[in-house]
Nucleic acid binder design. Structure first.
Ligand SMILES: [Mn+2]
Ligand SMILES: [Mn+2]
Ligand SMILES: [Zn+2]
Ligand SMILES: [Zn+2]
Lengths: 141, 141
DNA sequence: ATCCAAAATTAGAAAGAGTCTAAGTTTGGC
DNA sequence: GCCAAACTTAGACTCTTTCTAATTTTGGAT
C-alpha cells in the first residue's frame, strides 16, 4: 500500500494524516510479524526519529478504534499489533508468546439465544500450543 | 466442590495443599465472574488475611499450568481468571472489559496443512462487542 | 499566502500489572 | 519428630501503558 492509499484510509476514518501516523501504519503493513508497541516505536525511529513513545501508543489506539489495526492481547506480555488485511485466525505460542497467522476458514457464531442482548462486533478464533520453533526445541531435549 | 475435592485436584497435579492455594481455588469456584488477580487477592483477604499478593500470582500461575484454571488476557487490562469447569466460549466487552461465558458449541479446528509443525493444545473462540449493560447504556444516549 | 481552531505530538511523570529476591515458614514423606 | 523440598512473604523492581500540560502541526476558511 502506498502513501496515498494510507492517507485515504486515515482520512476516511476521520484521522488526520501526520508523518507519525503514516510511519506507524506503514511499519505495520511492512512487518506482518505482529510487532509490539515498543518494537514499532524502535523500528520507526531507527529510520525517522520523529516518533515519540506516547504517540506510538496514541496512534495505535486510534488505528485500532478506526478498525484499521487489530490488537492481540497475550497473557503476561505486551500486546501485539496487526494491520488488518485479509481475515485470518491466530496461533499464540504458550512458550515464546509469538503470534502467528492461520489461514482463514469460517467459524459459526452462537445463536441469538445464547447472546441475549449483547451486540457482537467480531469473533475470533485463537489456537494455542507450541510454535514450530518451540516444538522442535522441546522435542530435542 | 468441597475442600477434599480441591485437595485431590491439587495433589493429582503435583501441587501441595496449602491454605492459600485452597482459598484461591475456592474463591474462583465460588465467583464465576472472571475475577482479576487483584480481586482474588482482596476477596480472599477480606475473610482470611493469610494470602499475600505474590502468592496470589504464584498460585494462579501454578493452577493455570496444572490446567485447573483458565487465564483470559484482555487488551489493556488485567488478566481474568476462570476455574475450569464445563467447556464454554467467552464474550469480551469492548467498552467495560467484562468477560462473560457463552454456551459451548463445537468449533472446527484448522486442517493439518495450515498448522504445519505447530502443536495445538487448545483452541478458543472469543466474541467481542458490547455486553448487555453497555449496549443498553449506549442506546439510551 | 495567512490565519485559526482543532487535532496531534512531546517529554517526562505516573499508574497499573506482574515478577523477582532472599529470608522465613509449612508441608508431607520417612 | 526430622528434614528437604515446596511454599509463602514483603517489598523492591521491571515492564507496559496512560496521563499531563505545554508546544507544534494540520487542513479548512479567508
Ligand atoms: Mn495476524
Ligand atoms: Mn469463563
Ligand atoms: Zn514459540
Ligand atoms: Zn460492557
Amino acid at each position: 500500500m502506498d502513501a496515498e492509499r494510507i492517507r485515504e484510509s486515515l482520512e476516511s476514518n476521520g484521522l488526520r494524516f501526520t508523518s507519525q501516523r503514516y510511519c506507524v501504519m506503514a511499519f505495520l503493513l511492512e512487518h506482518a510479524g505482529h510487532p509490539t508497541a515498543a518494537e514499532i516505536f524502535e523500528g520507526v525511529n531507527r529510520l525517522d526519529p520523529r516518533l515519540s513513545r506516547a504517540t506510538t501508543y496514541n496512534n495505535l489506539r486510534d488505528l485500532v478504534q478506526a478498525g484499521l489495526v487489530r490488537e492481540v492481547a497475550v497473557e503476561g506480555r505486551a500486546a501485539r499489533f496487526d494491520a488488518k488485511s485479509a481475515e485470518h485466525h491466530h496461533f499464540i505460542c504458550d512458550w515464546c508468546g509469538r503470534v502467528e497467522d492461520i489461514a482463514w476458514y469460517p467459524v459459526p457464531r452462537p445463536g441469538a439465544a445464547s447472546l441475549g442482548k449483547r451486540v457482537v462486533r467480531a469473533s475470533e478464533l485463537i489456537l494455542r500450543g507450541l510454535c514450530s520453533a518451540c516444538a522442535a526445541e522441546k522435542a530435542s531435549q
